[in-house]
Amino acid sequence: MAGFGAPGVSTVEAGGLTLGVVAARWHGQLVDHMLDRAVAAGKACGVREVVVARVAGSVELPVVAQALARRCDAVVALGVVVRGETAHFDYVCQSVTEGLTRVALDESTPVGHGVLTVNTIGQARDRAGLPDSAEDKGWDSAVAVLDAALAIRAL
Rank of each mutant, 00 (worst) to 15 (best):
V63N: 05
S133A: 15
V82I: 15
R25D: 15
V31I: 11
E107H: 12
V21P: 03
L130D: 06
Q94P: 01
A44P: 06
A124S: 01
T109Y: 04
V103D: 10
S141W: 06
E60Y: 01
G8C: 02
K137R: 13
A67S: 14
K43N: 11
S141E: 09
G114H: 12
A128I: 11
V76I: 03
L100E: 05
P110F: 00
A14K: 10
H27S: 09
V50N: 00
D132V: 10
S141R: 01
A40K: 05
A148W: 00
R153G: 10
V64L: 12
V22G: 02
L17A: 06
T86S: 14
V47K: 01
L100Y: 03
P131C: 06
R25V: 09
G42V: 10
A134E: 11
V145T: 15
A40V: 09
R125P: 03
S58G: 13
G46H: 07
G114T: 09
L146D: 03
A148L: 14
W139Y: 03
V118T: 14
G8Y: 07
V81E: 09
A24N: 04
T11M: 03
G114Y: 12
V64D: 01
R25S: 14
V75A: 05
A87M: 12
G42N: 08
P62T: 07
L19D: 08
A65E: 06
Q66L: 12
L100D: 03
A65C: 02
Q123N: 08
D136Y: 04
W139G: 00
C45E: 02
V22A: 03
V31W: 09
R83V: 06
S141V: 02
R25N: 15
V12W: 10
W139C: 01
D136W: 03
D73E: 09
A2W: 07
L100F: 02
D140A: 14
K137Q: 13
D132M: 09
P110K: 00
V81T: 12
V145Y: 04
F89M: 07
T117C: 13
L150M: 10
V143W: 08
L78Y: 14
A144N: 02
A69R: 08
I152S: 11
G138C: 05
E60D: 14
R102M: 06
R70K: 14
D136K: 01
G20E: 13
V81N: 09
A151I: 10
E85D: 15
R83H: 07
E49A: 15
G84K: 10
L116Q: 03
A67N: 05
R153C: 04
R37Q: 12
L130H: 07
A149Q: 06
T101Q: 13
L105P: 01
G28N: 12
A67V: 13
L68D: 02
W26G: 05
G16R: 08
G112P: 01
